[in-house]
Design a protein around this nucleic acid. Structure first.
Lengths: 335, 335
DNA sequence: CTGAAAGCGCTTACAG
DNA sequence: CTGAAAGCGCTTACAG
């Protein structure tokens, strides 16, 4: 059903090898008139080159694999979309493989290897402590990851999480807050640890260290943020501001605050992380530290493609974060 | 760097063709002991079959293409993720191609054809009136789409949009609302037209037809929903309820309502469509008609794979929608 | 039970 | 300027 190079060649009266050269844009291989004939035949016949055949002989699939752990998450899907587009812009297809609790990460990598992807982009923070993934990935294949890979040896790209924490703390401190609580992501995660470090450090330096009871853990979900905020306020009723590790959890936090009759920011300020598309449209609009997911995706793809092209790339790539001040933060009550 | 069938065969002392058969699980081709030797060699050598070579001879890439128009949209990304997982569950890879304003849809399809995908899943409602896409897609290749394709001839799957509109209208009517407004998506879209039809019809049947000035168009975004709600209320201050065509726009509507000092649902009720993950966590939690994006993705992939497998599939597939009543709707003020 | 041939659709040296 | 050979890594009849 697909027409082959042989068909095109037959129609234009040349060998299929010659047709191949012309269709690949090699200049000066044929006379202008034969060239025209071949191009014409290809277009009349609707010739579409077979990437598998080409990939086989070139030993390059012109494809990158994307290993993502949950792209119903806006952050991940933004990353994946941007990465795919950047790859497409440089002529590469994107083969997606999702990993989750029920799926063996090594199997997912192997699938990608079967297709002989030229490199792999990883966006699977939930697997950062999975030794199997590290082992599977540390082959000869170029890889770029947005999360740390167990055992290291894989170039990463991401934003400065410690700065994110510092920015949030300094903003709150600057407004006059002293009794500050925080709803963090899962404790084992790098991103969580780094944000905590920056946040804690800034508070300590200002002479207002945060006690352990004002730190509540949640699971990145709306529900988790909601429940954690209630727990936080049950244990610390006098809190005047909360730093939440994700906009999605902040949605839950806003709900919890409303349920307790606490107005934001009059009674309690809220600063978050991510700056997802809805952040500016919540009531009140969210003050949040912007994480550049889209840029991360673009940059990750670019780095990977450069690496595939033989260039060497930095082992660690950091993108700047930025505090977006909106209306969910203000001075503490009576402050 | 990759080991080939020849390497495995050499190590186990058989021809590479025999190794192929054994590794493909053909039973009874070799003695148990040779079989064991071959399997052992493959595992020791870390043999990973080359899907391009296999695809070339089998004339099947065991891959599906996904053509999506904007999966930074939660609805689309949910669909894509579910579809990809369903495809993976049946052994198929997923090659993603995104189309948007700046990208030629026909080019995106062609790319997919180059990789010789076995079928294509389309999630590109913004391209439903694009003749080029219809032409490109109506080839010999199996295709399943969640949106109508210009010119028809492509099996579709989706939810019943007219029922969605009816459900919303009946719910509002049942609560006693009579002066109802609506914030719709772009007028040219099928989904918008169908929802309008169901919504309009139910209101008319109840003796409360909706005048044109109570219909405002928006573009599916937070901002669009916000602006449209303001326009709607500027023109119709006495409205007691609003039906919004998407949760994302409802976020903007909630903001607009708050800015006008209108409490939901005390002063104005709000019913939406989608039931995205955040819907239950907004303040107030959103009453919305649930659109089964995930099921749609799974079902779409299943249908496509069935079709690829040679089965015939229905031209039109409908999944049920469901009204989820939460707290953004209530009786009209003084009602 | 095992092997050798043919071929999938291309590209890339190498001849002429 | 054009063609013929070799080969990418496999699978699938076909022999033996």
């Amino acid at each position: 059903m697909y027409v082959s190079l042989r068909d095109v060649a037959a129609r234009s009266g040349v060998s299929f090898q010659t047709a191949s050269k012309v269709l690949n844009g090699r200049s000066g291989v044929v006379s202008p008139s034969t060239r025209e004939r071949i191009l014409q035949a290809a277009s009349e016949l609707g010739y579409v080159p077979n990437a598998m055949a080409r990939g086989l002989v070139r030993r390059a699939s012109v494809t990158v694999g994307v290993l993502a752990d949950d792209y119903s998450d806006l952050a991940v899907s933004q990353f994946v979309l941007a990465a795919q587009r950047a790859a497409a812009g440089r002529g590469h297809g994107a083969l997606i493989s999702s990993v989750h609790a029920n799926v063996d990460a090594e199997l997912a990598v192997r699938k990608l290897l079967e297709y002989r992807v030229d490199g792999i982009l990883v966006a699977a923070p939930s697997l950062e402590n999975e030794p199997g993934l590290g082992t599977a990935l540390r082959g000869a294949l170029p890889v770029v990851s947005i999360n740390r890979i167990h055992g290291g040896g894989v170039p990463t790209i991401g934003s400065d999480h410690a700065v994110t924490g510092t920015l949030a703390a300094e903003h709150l401190l600057g407004l006059g807050h002293r009794r500050i609580g925080t709803v963090i992501g899962p404790r084992g995660r790098r991103v969580v640890l780094s944000r905590m470090r920056g946040f804690r450090g800034a508070l300590r330096d200002a002479g207002h260290p945060i006690p352990a009871r004002r730190v509540t853990e949640a699971d990145w979900t709306h529900e988790g943020g909601w429940a954690a905020t209630h727990r936080l306020l049950d244990a610390n009723p006098a809190i005047t501001a909360v730093f939440v590790h994700a906009d999605v959890m902040a949605v839950g936090a806003l709900k919890a605050l409303a349920e307790r009759g606490l107005r934001v920011p009059d009674h309690c300020s809220l600063v978050s992380c991510d700056d997802l598309s809805f952040a500016g449209y919540l009531v009140p609009p969210l003050t949040t530290v912007r994480i550049p997911f889209q840029e991360t995706g673009e940059r990750a793809a670019t780095l990977l493609l450069d690496r595939i092209g033989g260039q060497s790339i930095p082992a660690r790539n950091l993108l700047p974060v930025e505090l977006i001040v909106r209306e969910s933060t203000g001075p503490p009550p009576g402050g």
